[in-house]
């Protein structure tokens, strides 16, 4: 698995003309693609006959507040060659933006919508970028590590009376000081996509 991935990664790097950061930890190895070459790398991975990754298994985001980035991870698979590749890219956490790969694989449209919904990554070029899982008037992107739940949503309390609730986000991470900075910057970005109604603004 590892050697095969290394060779595939090398082939991809040759075609792109950049040196890719190849990481091996426990589990699956992966390659880090610079954000500006993201779409080009995906196109190459699909069209190059030696690679021909025609199946986008999944595309998702990972929040790394300590590094100040939101990673976007794509799992590729090729039915012809039966090999797989994991590619990562980093986007800036305060203004995460990435070129859409929906023209490469149509499956990416929905995966990118989901990543936008839960992480707030703005995919430029996606034909239908709006919230998919959460309601249109939702505030914030819940899978970010510093997401804080409002006390109520549309008049329904978010905690059941008499039940205690484990807190999200801030409790999760040990170092506290890092969070406030990106959150303030995050707010206008998250607020623009769902039309920030008066009611939801109050909850915040």
């Amino acid at each position: 698995m590892t050697t095969a991935s290394k060779e595939i990664c090398k082939k991809l790097a040759d075609k792109l003309g950049v040196v890719l950061d190849f990481r091996e930890e426990a589990g699956d190895p992966w390659a880090l693609i610079p954000a500006e070459r993201w779409k080009q790398a995906c196109l190459t991975a699909r069209d190059e006959p030696e690679l021909s990754f025609n199946f986008l298994r999944s595309l998702c985001g990972v929040d790394r507040p300590d590094d100040g980035v939101i990673e976007v991870v794509a799992h590729l698979f090729s039915y012809q060659h039966r090999h797989a590749l994991v590619i990562h890219t980093n986007t800036d956490r305060s203004a995460s933006r990435l070129e859409s790969v929906s023209s490469v694989w149509p499956a990416a449209i929905w995966h990118e919508r989901e990543t936008f919904d839960l992480f707030g990554v703005d995919f430029t070029g996606n034909p239908d970028l709006r919230r998919i899982l959460l309601p249109e008037d939702w505030v914030g992107h819940p899978l970010l590590k510093d997401y804080e739940e409002p006390d109520s949503y549309r008049g329904i309390p978010t905690t059941r009376p008499g039940y205690e609730k484990k807190k999200f986000g801030p409790q999760l991470k040990k170092p506290a000081p890092k969070k406030p900075a990106p959150k303030v910057e995050k707010k206008p970005e998250g607020g623009e996509a769902p039309k920030g109604t008066a009611g939801s603004a109050e909850q915040k």
Partner: peptide, 16 residues
Amino acid sequence: GGLFQESYAVVKGGDL
């Protein structure tokens, strides 16, 4: 709300 007490998207009980 059952096992989804910690979920951000679930109503904690129909009686709410």
